[in-house]
Write a protein that binds this DNA or RNA. Structure first.
Length: 485
RNA sequence: CGGGGAGUAGCGCAGCCUGGUAGCGCGCCUGCUUUGGGAGCAGGAGAUCGUCGGUUCAAAUCCGGCCUCCCCGACCA
């Protein structure tokens, strides 16, 4: 008999075909389904629960750093969107326009927001008059529409959900500090809650946000060796305040333009979790954001399992639930335990508890970790702390595995030829130096499809300078290259 | 947006070339036997063949438009 390596067999193995694995697991695990409009998806309850967990944990951090939530209109008059030239140029190819209200053509077209700097800037100009009005620290949870050519569930959809912070400050230094504070908040969030290690740094001129002075971002490596941008924080300088006339009078009675920032993370993070942690058997959710942290599978053997096993399973579910664990008792009849094991593994539940006649007799439950498939009996006495401790270990292990993967797939290369072959054959990050010239950046992108994901900030550099991987000139920009989503 | 592939039951597919009563596997429903890693047998339900139009006595099948998905590029969170 052939040993079954793959315990889940209704999805394509990730190692065989990553793209197919990704879309299949998202649909079969019921995270999302395609809507009948190009590039649009329905986020199903199991997927939406992940987003809700992300929201809850992110919202807490946003508020703890002094920001408040508000809500702005989803339509932006064309005249407002046009004000910042670079902003318009960057976004106009992907803006959806409302041209009619009912049967009447509108006097002025309305953009469905591709991002809200313009509408929020126009409001800030009304609200900000004095240095005493600053800083303004507002966040909004909203939907966004960008008419993308190529779409993929969660990673790039025509409509997506996100949070966008928009702040205004009295000085350039304050604005920059805010930008970096949020960048670090995002990094900490990705690592703590999503168990995804990220590198952070600056974007190049070519990759920065349309209208920003400087864009910072966090980037992670997915298990197929491609990079994913997971969050951005923009220092807008006075670009928008000058065109939206956001002015205040300072303590010296001088009129000044405000210094602004904007920053966001989106439902893309759900896709990041799928791609960073998933394996051949399906999803592996980090416990802190898993829709279900524990699934209890009763072993339905014997005539009297409903009288013996089931009550113990129900009681166990109740105890865990009361302890704050997101737990489900899968007491469906007509599915064998083995079927349920595979199903919940595919759907990424971090921990499974099996309770059968043997366990009831021994006052134990068999715990099976999704991340390692390791099995261990736990006493039913004082179960909640044991489960919590296992969930913590799983969270940590997923992070450690992802970090190990990134380290194994971050390459340093001798020359451009090696660069090309590494990108082509091994993927992953290449950590190297760049002269700062757009010719080299463009040439590398054309020839290898790799882009500069981040330019490391001073404090993160491991060497002060080196020669550009492309032209050989001395450069002070230490960068990470990768092919990206 | 360019190049390629695809859309037939909830899922995966055959049928199309050569027009003539829509099929298979899994899943679903019922019953019995099972149940500690995706159970077995028997019976049953489920499809306006992506959509709109054309050709024809007759279209899943031939022709055209459109929509959606997948892969590879150009563009982007």
């Amino acid at each position: 008999m052939v040993k079954k390596e793959r315990l889940v067999k209704n999805i394509t193995a990730k190692s065989e075909d990553f793209s197919r694995w990704y879309t299949e697991v998202i649909r079969k695990a019921e995270l999302a389904d395609y809507a009948p409009i190009k590039g649009m998806m329905v986020i199903r309850p199991y997927g939406y629960a992940v987003w809700e967990n992300i929201q809850k944990l992110m919202d807490k951090r946003i508020k703890e750093t002094g920001h408040e939530n508000a809500y702005f209109p989803m339509f932006i008059p064309e005249s407002l969107l046009e004000k910042e030239a670079e902003h318009l140029e960057g976004f106009s190819p992907e803006v959806a326009w409302v041209t009619h209200g009912g049967n009447d053509e509108l006097e002025e077209r309305l953009a469905v927001r591709p991002t809200s700097e313009a509408i929020i800037g126009s409001m800030y100009s009304k609200w900000i008059k004095s240095y005493r009005d600053l800083p303004v620290l507002i966040n909004q949870w909203a939907n966004i529409v960008r008419w993308e050519k190529v779409t993929r569930p969660f990673l790039r959809t025509t409509e997506f959900l996100w949070q966008e912070g928009h702040t205004a400050h009295a000085t350039a230094e304050e604005g920059q500090a805010e930008t970096l504070k949020i960048l670090d908040l995002y990094r900490e969030f990705a690592e703590t809650e999503l168990a995804i290690p990220v590198i952070s740094g600056e974007k190049t001129e070519k990759e920065k946000f349309a209208g920003a002075e400087m864009t910072y971002c966090i980037e992670a490596l997915m298990t197929d060796g491609k990079a994913l941008q997971m969050g951005t924080s923009h220092d807008l300088g006075q670009h928008f305040s000058k065109v939206f006339n956001i002015r205040f009078e300072d303590q010296d009675q001088q009129l000044q333009y405000a210094w602004q920032t904007s920053w966001g993370v989106s439902t893309r993070l759900v896709g990041a979790v799928v791609m960073a942690h998933g394996d051949d058997s399906g999803l592996r959710f980090p416990p802190r954001i898993a829709p279900l942290q524990v699934v209890i599978v009763p072993i339905t053997i014997g005539e009297d399992w409903k009288e013996t096993v089931l009550p113990v399973a129900q009681n166990t579910a109740r105890i865990l639930s009361e302890a704050g664990v997101r737990v489900k008792l899968d007491d469906r009849e007509g599915f064998t335990p083995g079927w349920k094991f595979s199903e919940w593994e595919m759907r990424g539940v971090p921990l499974r508890l099996e309770i059968g006649p043997r366990d009831v007799k021994n006052h134990k439950t068999l715990a099976v970790r999704r991340d390692t498939r390791e099995k261990q009996p736990l006493s039913l006495d004082n179960l909640a702390p044991q489960v919590q401790s296992l969930l913590d270990k799983i969270q940590q292990n997923l992070f450690d595995q992802a970090l190990q993967f990134r380290e194994d797939n971050t390459h340093e290369v001798e020359d451009y030829e090696e660069f090309k072959s590494v990108i082509e054959e091994r993927r992953g990050f290449i950590k190297t130096f760049w002269c700062g010239g757009s010719e080299c950046e463009n040439r590398i992108k054309e020839e290898t499809m790799a882009t500069i994901r981040v330019v490391l900030m001073e404090a993160d550099r491991t060497e002060a300078s080196g020669s550009c991987i492309c032209c050989g000139e001395q450069g002070r920009k230490q960068v990470y290259f990768a092919r990206a989503y």
